[in-house]
Design a binder for these strands. Structure first.
Lengths: 219, 219
DNA sequence: ACCTGAACACCGTTCAAGT
DNA sequence: ACCTGAACACCGTTCAAGT
């Protein structure tokens, strides 16, 4: 027997599954309704309208990121606990992005000020405080950290990092790329040939951010 | 008299104006066509289809960012030239985001591997090389820099940085926010009360990124 | 080469009605 | 309280036809 909350979760489950299987554009009120065997109008009492349904998806993803991130903590790594929290949050963001690649771009398209989002931000606030960052600098560094981490996670799965020879349109292979328009690309040709190791790159980026945070704690 | 290229630009102009005036959702093939006094199907030979039209918008915005960024260069600031290029690119991204707030989130939703995008990346590659960054590290630092800068610009205009008392939903003012769920928020209450100065915060973030780049050049 | 007009298979959302 | 069914005002895109 369903309570109201169960029904809402069932709707969000169906929307997420639809997005993962057939893309975000396949998430229509009609398709979601039909997937759970109900009329489109039956969704409205539970999710408000389509905009609110997408907000619900965003909230779900943020919750998943926090869950995946705190789970990562058990992995007994070197360094202080606050560093593990930050690495966990970053890992959570990236793994959720990989799980729901067509949905995650919504995190940058609409604000999430739900309790779930606040709880996630709070973990990072606390980690920065534990790192010794002066309270006045904590909010800025939280935004710096999460903006980069989410931006990387989204860019990776959306193909924004793709070079011309990657998943994008075949403009590069059109042959006629004039090196005069991209001289630095020519200089770097040797280092642009191989596809980057995104795991390694993300680790290096995190290490750089942690250097910044340490510096803010000292200075 | 119109050439084919003019017509395409006219279509993109109309789509951008529609997005700025009535939001991205108002950009339909039918609305764009009617704004330039033509039938929807007349757009197809010029832009392909709606997806490609949105790609065209993304390309336009990237071009505008590069233009605004290189224009910023003339402002004779202190520090080396490569620093001016990076600050200019950041300024360009942010000012274009403010000009087209509903469109800019698309930059993280779809890859742009056009000549325009490559030209923009090339400027940053060159700046990093000029800074003395070893070539092997340039591509990673370019992605780090642009991911953060674009992420900040999008977050700022999309309201992702909004606190509960901001533009988002009125959840915070619902009164019943339990401090137990957000202990670090309570600790930081004094520093979360005032609305941040986004100009100042962005400057501070850029300064931090430039520190990282200098460190990569030295180490 | 460029555009029109009718048509098809979809949308989100309203309203009044059922149980 | 929760759901249905018909209806309205939209979509993107096809096809055949016009000039």
């Amino acid at each position: 027997m369903y309570t109201v909350a169960d029904r809402r979760q069932e709707i969000l489950d169906a929307a997420l599954a639809l997005a993962d299987e057939r893309g975000l554009d396949a998430v229509s009120m009609r398709a979601v309704a039909s997937r759970i065997g109900v009329t489109p109008m039956a969704l409205y009492p539970h999710v408000g309208n389509k905009e609110a349904l997408l907000d619900g998806l965003v909230d779900r993803l943020i919750g998943d990121m926090v869950t995946a991130g705190t789970g990562y903590l058990g992995t007994g790594l070197a360094g202080p606990a606050w560093e593990g929290v930050l690495r966990g949050a970053a890992y959570g963001a990236r793994s959720v992005a990989r799980a729901h690649p067509t949905v995650v771009a919504l995190l940058f398209a609409r604000p999430a000020v739900t309790d779930t989002a606040v709880a996630g931000v709070d973990l990072i606030y606390q980690a920065l405080l534990d790192a010794g960052v002066p309270p006045a600098r904590v909010p800025r560094l939280e935004r710096l950290f999460t903006t980069f981490v989410l931006g990387f996670a989204i860019s990776e799965v959306s193909g924004r990092f793709a070079t011309g020879s990657g998943t994008g349109e075949p403009r590069q292979s059109r042959g006629r790329r004039q090196p005069d328009l991209a001289p630095a690309h020519a200089t770097l040709a040797r280092h642009l040939a191989a596809a980057p190791d995104w795991d390694a790159e993300f680790q290096a980026d995190l290490a750089d951010l942690i250097v910044l945070i340490r510096a803010a704690a000292t200075g």
